[in-house]
Design a binder for these strands. Structure first.
Lengths: 165, 165
DNA sequence: ATAAACTTTCAATAATATTTGAAAGTTCAA
DNA sequence: TTGAACTTTCAAATATTATTGAAAGTTTAT
């Protein structure tokens, strides 16, 4: 396979994957590009490579930085900002786990904590309490697993799991 | 908190959570409703409760069945179809893990297997190979974890992880 | 202070995804 | 068969989300 073809497929696939994980396509594609680049890239270079506008580029680069997946690089003697991505896949995984936990799991747990307290003794309400308590338990367990993953550095998490197989 | 309020919040939250996980809001809400219902629900009941059209209801109920999250219930003497959801949260987790693995992870692993074979010895291509191989490794490890989770019945998975904390 | 180089914002537009609802299709009892 | 009861389809309408690009904002060298 030619490099140009492989690269195209890779960026395309990363974008698609991003979409089905609540990350917008462009953000994922910028990330994909930064991941394989040997040098930090400027806004212009990202615009050119992905054929996207300046505004879009700026917006999504900032989103990537919010997610802790990219950072600014200042090149001495240059006014322009360059961007690079952390290439350590484990760090990326941890970072994504951390952010999604904060943005999605934590609010749901908070909500479940509230609504499981609903009062009443009709069959309907009893069932509601039962189901939401189960969900609460599951969410809390998931939280523990994520915390374990987030705290464990390097490959520790996978190594342990590998032994269980 | 009143039951009606708790129920509303729960359905709303489940819909939002669905959206950020690549599942459409309505599908998630139907699932939420079926989860807390003490009896199977008909298309009409779902339409009424969620204020959605017949077509939408039909489409999303079928999607839920595709995901293995709901099933038809035939009530003797009734022409109408009723639907119920599996309420075992572990089964749901396993089902979702299984489907997403099949729909998303498997294709990405396949792609990575292809593109890591890109030939060339420029710095660019070498970096590309390095990054994609790392991703491949990570994806494969993730796959193992998911398989472990999918195969482990009941709470085994969480129990084991709990001990590691 | 000025202006060039650069970044950010945001209203307008475009692209995408979801929803509707009426028509077509199916099933089944009579 | 027929027609009532029910399900499915899908083109059109609506809602949501992403993108553009020009204007406004910022920074820095002189």
């Amino acid at each position: 396979m030619k490099y140009s073809e492989a690269k195209e497929k890779y960026i395309q696939a990363w974008g698609t994957l991003g979409s089905s994980w609540g990350v917008n396509r462009t953000m994922a594609q910028i990330h994909a590009l930064l991941m394989i680049s040997t040098v930090p890239l400027s806004t212009e270079e990202l615009m050119e490579e992905l054929k996207i506008s300046r505004g879009n580029t700026n917006m999504n680069v900032r989103a990537l930085m919010d997610w802790g997946l990219a950072e600014k690089v200042l090149v001495p003697g240059e006014r322009k900002e360059y961007f690079k991505a952390d290439k350590n896949i484990m760090n990326i995984g941890v970072q994504v786990a951390k952010e999604r936990k904060r943005r999605e799991l934590d609010p749901i747990i908070k909500l479940l904590n509230d609504i499981t307290l609903v009062e009443g003794d009709t069959a309907e309400v009893k069932e509601f309490r039962k189901v939401t308590k189960d969900l609460q338990k599951f969410a809390t367990q998931t939280e523990s697993v994520l915390d374990l993953f987030i705290k464990s550095n390097q490959n520790w998490f996978f190594k342990i799991l590998g032994k269980l197989r």
